[in-house]
Amino acid sequence: MSVSRSLLGLLEGQPQYGYTLRQRYDRWFAGGHPVASAQVYSSLRRLADAGLTEQVGVEPGGGPDRRLYGITGAGVEELERWLAEPELPDLRAARQVLFAKIVVALLTSRQPQRILERQRQTHMARMRQLREVRTAGEPIEQLDADFEMFHLEADLRWIDAAGPRIDRIRASLQEHPC
């Protein structure tokens, strides 16, 4: 998730304060994992350094001054570029963990089927939670739940496909140890 590019999108409509941007980010993008204020302000600072945002006002307050941020013309161009660029699937993080666990289990004569079954149970429990959101959540929460649900379904298909291959892989490792 690109926090900085999402902030550009939130700024396009009108200038906003960092606090307001954090609240709006959490509402639309956080999915239950709020963004840290420090991350919002450091992103705004980097965007300003790159000429994509600018400070358009300051309001004195009881504490630090409240800064009003706006998007620049270059920021709008960058937002357009980011929106037009398709996202390449990045499966490395999920692949690295589960795939690595299965390979290590095979290499160390452990039971990869147990790992797959525990992962299946975890996915199924998460899918039950998501079904509730898809039924009773706000439309934006439902959209987010759909996205996660479809990815979990793909993981489950992989788990199903991996199961029958394990015995063949184990036999191959016995014939040709690493």
Rank of each mutant, 00 (worst) to 15 (best):
M127F: 02
D144Q: 12
E87R: 13
D167F: 07
P15R: 06
V97N: 01
T135S: 09
A154M: 07
A161K: 11
E138M: 11
A171N: 14
E85H: 12
R131N: 09
Q55N: 03
A154W: 07
R24I: 05
R110N: 13
A162R: 04
E77D: 15
E148Y: 02
V35R: 14
L83D: 06
G62I: 14
I169E: 12
E175Y: 13
L98V: 14
A136R: 12
S2H: 07
H151M: 02
G63A: 14
A100W: 11
P164M: 00
A50M: 02
L8A: 13
G57K: 04
G62E: 15
L173T: 09
G32R: 02
W158A: 10
Y17F: 06
G57S: 04
L130Y: 05
L79Q: 05
L83Y: 02
P139L: 04
R46T: 06
L79Y: 10
R92M: 09
R128W: 07
Y17V: 01
D144Y: 00
A93N: 05
Q113V: 13
D90P: 01
R5Q: 12
G73H: 07
R45N: 11
R131Q: 11
Y69Q: 10
G32K: 01
A145R: 01
R110A: 13
R46Q: 15
G137D: 00
M149V: 08
E87W: 04
P60F: 06
A93L: 11
Y25K: 04
E87K: 12
L143T: 03
A94E: 10
E85Y: 00
Q121S: 09
D26W: 05
E132D: 13
L11N: 07
E153A: 14
P89I: 02
I71H: 01
P15C: 01
G31S: 03
S37D: 05
T72D: 04
A136K: 11
A48T: 15
S43K: 09
A171K: 08
E175P: 00
T135M: 08
E59R: 13
L83A: 07
V104C: 13
H176F: 15
Q111C: 13
E85T: 14
Q111M: 11
L88D: 09
H151K: 11
H151N: 15
M124V: 15
R22C: 02
M149H: 09
E117P: 03
K101P: 02
T122S: 11
L106E: 13
F147R: 14
Y69V: 00
M127C: 03
G73N: 11
A94D: 03
E117Q: 13
K101S: 14
G57T: 11
P86K: 06
L7C: 05
R131W: 09
A145E: 06
R120G: 07
F29H: 05
H123I: 15
R165D: 06
S2T: 08
G13I: 07
V58S: 13
L21V: 03
L143R: 15
M149N: 01
S6E: 07
R46E: 10
D146Q: 15
P112T: 03
G137Y: 08
Q113N: 14
F29D: 00
R5E: 12
G75C: 00
T20P: 05
Q121Y: 00
